[in-house]
């Protein structure tokens, strides 16, 4: 009788342990106060600490590229909000050059498509593009999965996360998504002012008013983009001849339209625009005040010129700098894995 009781209590204890294990495995995604609901469906890829860490290791590992020279972090550096400072166009294996500016990676759970032209329709399949592009990593997912399956460290890491005997493409992509989803920037000075934890200076306040009047219809708060595709009046680069969204939709109405980027961490994410043509925020503001090229797909918001005095530009930039989130830029959880 005693031994039966003992057995039952051991089984019960093990079950409790298992329950705790299952609970620990899932990590909740925290939506910052007053932010909209994310677009990403977390029920199809529930976050777990193991998978986030695995995604982080993959993000920083050049094994994803054909010659093991380029990792995601080569063009997406944490200290510049996961873009490539000083590089107008993305780089790839063998010193190859892409045709567009590597975008900053943050708050990706709120995006419903990716890339400057929205060519990618889901965060999970985003990584396939740089992995496969001949001027980026020049690799393919079949070969990546093959290399990972031959690697003892990765076999262990994947088995610990997915409890399966071999690594699949789905697991690789979803793990990278998990890490990218955790890249949430919501602790800038702007955010603390909105949460009534600090105050703007007079200059920043003035800049915020100018921002709301002139910029916020496209760079909508709190994500600082409405993620639409628009033509913001940039002249066509005669060498790149990049017509943006039109290549994807096949519709002439989309000529020269690009996805509106978020302005968060803009202080550190230079150069600006899809081809990185502007190095400074002054150049960007000068474009909007006197550089707009009129043509039939130009955003209607830009049809009447934006007028800013020299002082107003300084104030507006002071506000834009309040979007810098040092907690995000220096968060050790986003850095090179230990």
């Amino acid at each position: 009788m005693d031994s039966t009781f003992q057995k039952i209590s051991i089984i019960f204890f093990l079950l409790v342990l298992l329950t705790a294990f299952v609970w620990v495995e899932e990590t909740a995604f925290k939506i910052p106060d007053n932010w909209p609901k994310p677009k990403y469906d977390f029920t199809k890829n529930p976050l777990s600490e193991n998978k986030i860490e695995l995604g982080r290791i993959l993000f920083y590992d050049p094994i994803l590229s054909k010659d093991s020279s380029i990792s995601c972090s080569s063009c997406h550096l944490q200290y510049t909000a996961f873009t490539h400072m000083d590089h107008a166009l993305s780089h790839g294996i063998g010193d190859s050059m892409g045709t567009r500016n590597a975008p900053a990676l943050m708050n990706l759970a709120w995006h419903s498509n990716f890339m400057w032209d929205g060519a990618i329709n889901h965060l999970d399949v985003q990584s396939l593009a740089p992995i496969s592009h001949p001027d980026e990593m020049g690799e393919n997912i079949v070969s990546v999965v093959y290399k990972l399956n031959r690697n003892k460290k990765y076999r262990h890491l994947f088995a610990a996360s997915y409890h399966l005997s071999s690594i699949t493409g789905e697991q690789v992509l979803k793990s990278i998504s998990q890490f990218m989803l955790t890249l949430v920037s919501s602790h800038s000075k702007y955010d603390s002012v909105m949460r009534k934890q600090s105050l703007f200076t007079n200059q920043e306040k003035n800049g915020y008013a100018l921002f709301q009047k002139n910029c916020s219809s496209c760079h909508t708060e709190p994500l600082f983009s409405n993620f639409q595709f628009v033509n913001n009046g940039l002249a066509l680069d005669p060498d790149l001849r990049d017509y943006g969204r039109m290549k994807i939709s096949g519709d002439a109405k989309d000529s020269l339209k690009f996805k509106i980027p978020s302005l968060r961490n803009i202080e550190f994410s230079s150069p600006y625009m899809h081809d990185g043509r502007f190095k400074t925020l002054n150049q960007v503001l000068n474009h909007y005040t006197k550089g707009i090229q009129k043509n039939n797909t130009l955003a209607k918001e830009l049809e009447t010129p934006i007028i800013l005095s020299a002082n107003e530009k300084v104030d507006l930039i002071a506000f834009l700098i309040t979007l810098t989130d040092r907690q995000f830029l220096f968060n050790p959880a986003y850095g090179f894995p230990k």
Partner: peptide
């Protein structure tokens, strides 16, 4: 087509 990475026959490694 718009539901992200899938497994099995729909895994992107299937080419």
């Amino acid at each position: 087509n718009t539901s992200g990475a899938q497994g099995g026959d729909l895994d992107p490694t299937k080419g």
